[in-house]
Design a protein around this nucleic acid. Structure first.
Lengths: 260, 260
DNA sequence: ACGTCAGTTCCAAAATTCGGAACCATGTCC
DNA sequence: GGACATGGTTCCGAATTTTGGAACTGACGT
């Protein structure tokens, strides 16, 4: 195992659930001996990837990670274009907008557009969630080939919230529905009482794919309002697909043909 | 040189001025041979610290850096308390607020509070600037011992903007002034036409230090308005010092005594 | 006084990295 | 079509690092 692999193993121990770790935590999480942990933690601290609270002695991500994190996709055309459009939809509807990317079978929130209806933001940027449990996560998965999806979902199907697909077959059924309708919907999944609608956008130029979703309180919205969100999203999707040269893959055409 | 050191050397090549790099760029910037660069770049990409544009083949910070970056000081009490107060001052005055930390002889912007007077934000979070060229940078330096300051400033004094101190002696004179008045001021330095006032806050509990500043257009503000900002900042400083147990160090008393 | 946490230091064995050279795949220019 | 540039990959022996168990340190807590 290379030093870099070990370093990454330590860095991956940090998450929004565990934003700082003690020496013992790191040892337990990585299973590495004391001396190795000591050396590595020191290197990471010295280079700025981690910092250490002088009082509690706990470690947390450092200034360098902050600086680099700010650089990530800072000049990404696809994202800024999508964000601009999403901002307008959120301003009109008052709901909260999300932009996310797919990583394995999880999605990571990249951008949030807070709505005027103050729905507490529980998914800040950087948040990682199983893609099958969110509307835009499923929208992104739906644009992959069936083999690719199968390869991404862990062999032991993960335990997902109540209203998310509970096994691979249910998941594929929902993805097929998204392929048919072009829009993905969720309600009462990761967060109780919260619903969302989303779609996936794939740049024709770079092949880069992002998920775009609008989120709202299920209780506080009417059926009509949700239909309005659907119209807004469909219009935004059409516009963005035109601007980015996103042609819905032949995969979808095949899937449609198969299910008809 | 360890693999980690090399990895960091590559990561440090990225900055807001150079948010993505080609293979050749990395080779030139690190001076490493082709094979080493290839191996390392691949490792960094595979572990998610970098990603590669499939079209242009250029490298940029990856998803993992984004996730970790979001975790950096996410639950930092000193910063959230300061941000809360700064938000109020910015709402009252309409100016833009900054929170930064010191790293060596540079400062890094951590948080921005946009003002209502839309002054284009040229210093986004993550931005690195010589501390001697900003108001809160100098405010933070002023709270260090003279030896510490001397150790941080490079032996060949850096080329700073017109109105910043042009040599070590001038710099120390400005820091001494900050030590006397407790407030730091800047005008037409890093950015032409922009002025700012700031101070440094140091937690009595953790020893952590941050710089807090308010920034405005010099042309668009009157002397009276700048005096108002001074009053606001002085009041905020007093309140935050009380809340965080920040006692202005004896160093300052000594400096005061020395200059009197 | 005793235990715990958080490290550090040492050392020889084991594993990784290093870098030059050769090779290769694309894309562009003439 | 051929030459050249960019952006890599692969190979291999030598050189350098990393590894992990064990012993030791130092600050707190009770």
């Amino acid at each position: 195992m290379s030093a870099l692999t070990n370093a990454i193993e330590i860095l991956r121990c940090f998450s929004s659930a565990r934003p700082d770790l003690s020496f013992a935590d790191v040892m337990a999480l990585t299973g590495k001996p004391k001396s190795s942990t000591s050396r590595l933690l020191r290197s990471l601290r010295d280079c700025g990837l981690l910092e250490q609270d002088p009082h509690t002695r706990r470690y947390r991500p450092g200034l360098l990670t902050f600086e680099l994190g700010r650089l990530h996709r800072a000049h990404d055309d696809l994202i800024s274009m999508a964000e601009r459009e999403l901002r307008e939809v959120c301003a009109r509807t008052g709901h909260t907008g999300y932009i996310a990317v797919l990583d394995g079978y999880e999605q990571v929130v990249l951008r949030i557009v807070p709505g005027s209806n103050p729905l507490r933001v529980v998914n800040p940027p950087g948040q990682r969630t199983p893609a099958l449990a969110t509307s835009n996560g499923r929208a992104m998965l739906a644009r992959l080939s069936d083999e690719d999806i199968r390869a991404r979902v862990p062999s032991t199907y993960p335990k997902l919230p109540r209203n998310s697909p509970q096994n691979f077959k249910q998941a594929m059924a929902r993805l097929d529905e998204i392929r048919r309708t072009g829009l993905s919907e969720a309600a009462d999944e990761s967060i109780e009482g919260v619903g969302s609608q989303g779609f996936a956008l794939k740049s024709g130029e770079t092949g880069e794919m992002i998920g775009i979703a609008v989120s709202y309180s299920v209780q506080a919205t009417t059926v009509a309002e949700r239909a309005n969100v659907r119209r807004e999203l469909t219009a935004m999707a059409a516009k963005l697909r035109r601007l980015t040269g996103d042609q819905l893959d032949p995969v979808i055409t095949r899937a449609q043909a198969g299910t008809r």
